[in-house]
Simulated scan of single mutants.
Amino acid sequence: MPDITWEAPFCQDASNCFRFGTDSDGNAYIAVDGEEDRYLTDSVAALRALIRDIKAGKADHLL
């Protein structure tokens, strides 16, 4: 398991909390708060692009 530095949880409300993390190799991670052993990973650039697109409304059709 990589050595991940997790940020504080980001919560929309009490039931939707996610954590973002990074490692020393430049990888980024997303996990549900409390389930950090089950994460998605990609590059920091890919995570940044995902967040930017979500903020721009490009994923609204999924909700």
Rank of each mutant, 00 (worst) to 15 (best):
M1G: 09
M1A: 15
M1Q: 15
P2M: 08
P2K: 04
D3N: 13
D3H: 06
D3T: 15
I4W: 01
I4E: 00
I4N: 01
T5L: 05
T5K: 10
T5S: 05
W6R: 06
W6A: 00
W6E: 01
E7Y: 11
E7N: 13
A8D: 07
A8L: 11
A8M: 11
A8G: 10
P9T: 12
P9I: 09
P9L: 02
P9E: 03
C11N: 02
C11S: 08
Q12P: 09
Q12N: 15
D13L: 01
A14R: 06
A14L: 15
S15D: 15
S15M: 06
S15W: 05
N16P: 06
N16Y: 06
N16R: 14
N16W: 05
C17W: 02
C17R: 00
F18I: 11
F18E: 10
R19W: 03
F20L: 15
F20S: 10
G21F: 01
T22E: 05
D23G: 14
S24Y: 14
S24I: 05
D25K: 10
G26R: 10
G26V: 08
G26S: 05
N27I: 07
N27K: 15
N27S: 15
A28N: 03
A28M: 01
A28Q: 03
A28I: 01
Y29K: 01
I30M: 09
I30A: 08
A31H: 04
A31R: 02
A31N: 02
A31T: 02
V32C: 06
V32M: 11
D33C: 00
D33E: 09
G34I: 03
G34S: 02
G34K: 04
G34W: 03
E35Y: 05
E35T: 04
E35Q: 14
E36W: 01
E36C: 01
E36A: 01
D37Y: 09
D37A: 12
R38Q: 10
R38I: 07
Y39H: 09
Y39K: 01
L40T: 14
L40Y: 14
L40H: 10
L40P: 04
L40V: 06
T41R: 13
T41C: 12
T41Y: 11
T41D: 07
D42Q: 14
D42F: 15
S43W: 08
S43L: 04
V44Q: 15
V44C: 04
V44D: 02
A45K: 08
A45M: 08
A46K: 13
A46W: 08
A46R: 07
L47G: 15
L47A: 11
A49K: 13
A49M: 14
L50I: 06
L50V: 14
I51R: 04
I51V: 05
R52V: 02
R52C: 02
D53Y: 01
D53K: 06
D53H: 13
I54V: 11
K55A: 11
K55W: 08
A56P: 08
G57S: 07
G57M: 07
K58I: 04
A59L: 12
A59C: 14
D60H: 10
D60F: 08
D60K: 06
H61R: 13
H61Q: 15
H61D: 10
L62Q: 11
L62I: 14
L63M: 08
L63S: 12
